[in-house]
């Protein structure tokens, strides 16, 4: 297989639930061999539905997708043999030990014992769970369970690994550690990775390319740099002391490209934040208002995300934390 061949090809993939709810709406994208492809989007945007179709758990309503040239609907068994899946939930059986869980996975792939025993031991070593392999997984911490899921997802030496929100609900340190494992795994096995995530910093630093999905549609695909460039310039955020709308005042300044008011904070796009900011302050002061807060930023994925989905990633994080707090997660729509 040549370096640039597409490992995942998705054409007009669509999923409609109960004949009315369009969860995924004619999406198109390709994932190249060896890259980490990130799927970003708000809750309910269709990320998990897309992943469930690609891993052959859900049947598409229309459109098609190929993984390593195998059609996900018609050759689902061939797809299943060549992919690994790390689901959003902790799927390991709590009544079994770590080793028993990983061996169960091996058996579901039909891997002969003499191969899987060695492989399971290597993988447990890799995710540093060898010491705990004979302990029931109910005694594991969140980070350990996530690592076990990772190891289980690799037992069949997949060529493509699907990770559905692999760091959801983990604390900052464990998240960072999990990402280190994922990077090591990618390097070691030369896999192609497809992942969904809520965390922009991670998508930014890890993903080779990102697709932003909203309301079941892909709004933009590109490398993090391309996406940031597409914003077109720097961003000034400011707030004033009084609660009056001064959008029109700011708009009059020629260097200002765009102004958005969101929760008493003005987000202003301009070519160069350093040069435009003094002009804005001057204009506002002339109208008798006082600037209370001001910051200049070079574009990040957060701005990209806001631009394309109209939602800030901050609200997302709160939402997902709330969801995690509700114990069992029940979010797969059927």
């Amino acid at each position: 297989m040549s370096q640039n061949e597409d490992v995942i090809k998705v054409e007009n993939l669509t999923k409609v639930f109960n004949k009315t709810l369009v969860a995924v709406d004619h999406i198109n994208f390709n994932v190249k061999k060896g890259e980490i492809f990130g799927f970003l989007g708000p809750n309910g945007a269709g990320k998990t539905t897309t992943i469930n179709m690609l891993i052959t758990v859900l049947k598409p309503t229309s459109g098609k997708a190929e993984i390593l040239c195998h059609d996900i609907a018609k050759q689902s068994d061939a797809v299943r043999y060549s992919i690994g899946v790390v689901p959003q939930e902790y799927t390991a059986d709590e009544d079994l030990t770590g080793l028993e869980n990983i061996m169960l996975c091996a058996d579901m792939y039909g891997i002969p014992r003499y191969i899987s025993k060695k492989r399971a031991a290597d993988l447990l070593e890799l995710v540093e769970l060898t010491k705990f392999k004979d302990k029931k997984t109910q005694t594991y911490s969140g980070g350990m369970r996530r690592r076990l899921e990772l190891a289980s997802g690799l037992i069949n030496r997949p060529k493509v690994l699907f990770l559905d929100e692999p760091t959801l609900g983990l604390d900052v340190q464990t998240r960072a550690a999990t990402w280190n494992y994922i990077k090591t795994l990618k390097k070691e096995f030369g896999m192609t990775l497809f992942m969904t995530t809520h965390y922009l910093e991670e998508a930014d630093s890890l993903c080779d390319r990102i697709a932003i999905i909203d309301h079941g549609k892909i709004v933009v695909v590109g490398t993090p740099e391309e996406l940031k460039d597409s914003i077109g310039g720097d961003i000034i955020t400011l707030s004033i002391q009084k609660n009056t709308d001064i959008t029109d005042i700011i708009k009059k300044i020629p260097q200002v490209k765009e102004v958005k008011l969101d929760d008493k904070t003005y987000t202003i796009k301009t070519e160069s934040a350093e040069l435009t900011a003094p002009l804005i302050i001057e204009a506002i002061r002339k109208e008798g208002h006082i600037v209370s807060k001001l910051s200049l930023t070079k574009p990040t994925l957060n701005e990209v995300y806001l631009q394309y989905t109209g939602k800030s990633m901050r609200d997302q994080a709160d939402e997902s934390r709330e969801r995690m707090g509700h114990g069992l997660m029940m979010r797969r729509p059927h």
Partner: peptide, 14 residues
């Protein structure tokens, strides 16, 4: 189904 094991099993060739 609730704990996600079913989905995991469904993604394997079993």
């Amino acid at each position: 189904r609730r704990l996600g094991f079913l989905n995991k099993a469904l993604s394997t060739p079993v």
